Simulated scan of single mutants.
Amino acid sequence: MDRSSWFSFEQGDMTIFIFVMALSGLQYAITEIIPGFDVGPLEIGVGDFIFIPIVLVLLFRTFWAALAVPVGEIVFEDILLGDFNGLGVMEDLLLVSTAFFFAALLLRDPENRVQLAVVVLIAEGLNEFLAMFVDVGKVYVGVEELEAVPGLPESVLVLEGVDFAVQMAITGILFGVVPALYLYPKLHGKIEPLLGMEPYRGTPGASMLEGFSWKAATMALIAFPLAFAFAAAGEAGFGFNIVWEAEFLETYGQPFILVPVAVAAAVALVVWQLAKRRSA
């Protein structure tokens, strides 16, 4: 598949979408198992294994692969765990897909490890930065309560800023850049042909600025207010919101987390086997 546009939906894109969705959902489900811990008002833990979805998006380089990342969370975490908020999930759907899409455009030289590291940090940083201001906005418009720290009555900016720094260190670097620098070169040029796509060769020595797209930048600018509007509407309990709260974890306990893990792994394995058989 020789792609002419990031947005064109060509033969094989559905396979890639489902494959990325399943593997992204798998990592979201697994991170649910890993416990976090509180340091004062902050909750510190593994946000996501971001290296899995960002490497997949960089390999397949389609907007649909970027969109599949938050869809994986919605399907294999929110729905299968019985905690779905229709308006609430729109925040991640808009911000994650836009951040990954925008960042992936900037990778122009797949052999440049510095460029790869910066792109991974941009993907995580842009998502966290926009999500931070969505959370701040919800407090200031009054749809979410301020969790103030004693002595810091206006601490929402401080808390969100510290949380941003923590997530960038843990999710962005430890579970983002470090494994991505190993995984992307190992998979590049090997996994794409099995799913019917030509590997991206890029341009040796090309600058990241050559990948900057005003269309993608405009998408990010539009995604932010839309994400805030959906998130605020969800917190305010608007009547047109679709909410499903089966709360399977509370009903069946932590072992139930193995259900979405098993389902996501099975879907990814089936898609992989079918793709390999088709390419043989």
Rank of each mutant, 00 (worst) to 15 (best):
G176K: 10
F84L: 13
F129M: 14
F256M: 11
L183G: 00
E124C: 13
G40E: 05
D92Y: 12
I170Y: 05
V136Y: 11
A246S: 08
R201F: 02
G125D: 05
P110H: 05
A99G: 07
A266Y: 00
V143E: 08
S279C: 08
F248K: 03
E91R: 15
D135Q: 14
Y200R: 01
L93N: 03
A280N: 12
G142E: 12
A104V: 06
T98G: 02
V120C: 10
A148N: 03
P179D: 10
L121I: 09
W6V: 05
I54L: 08
I44W: 03
I44Y: 03
V118E: 04
Y28P: 00
L126Q: 08
P199F: 01
V149F: 13
A99L: 09
E235C: 04
V166A: 01
M132C: 08
F19L: 11
V143D: 07
L258G: 13
G211P: 06
M1A: 13
L116E: 09
D48V: 11
E124P: 01
A220F: 12
L221T: 08
T218A: 14
L95C: 07
D13R: 12
G151L: 00
L157H: 07
V270E: 01
W64N: 12
V120A: 10
I30D: 00
D109M: 09
M168N: 13
A280G: 08
G211Y: 08
Q273Y: 12
D109H: 06
F84W: 05
A262D: 04
G25E: 09
L221A: 15
I52N: 00
S207Y: 07
G189V: 03
V156E: 10
L174Q: 04
P225S: 00
K276N: 13
M90I: 12
V134K: 07
G151P: 07
I44K: 02
F240E: 12
F17W: 09
F129E: 09
M90G: 13
A117L: 11
L105C: 07
G47W: 09
I30P: 01
I18K: 02
P260Y: 04
G253W: 05
L183F: 00
L26Q: 05
G142Y: 10
P179A: 08
A229N: 01
V177D: 11
V136S: 07
A266P: 00
Q273D: 06
V156Q: 11
L121V: 04
F164T: 04
V139H: 01
Q167G: 15
D92K: 14
N127C: 13
A264D: 07
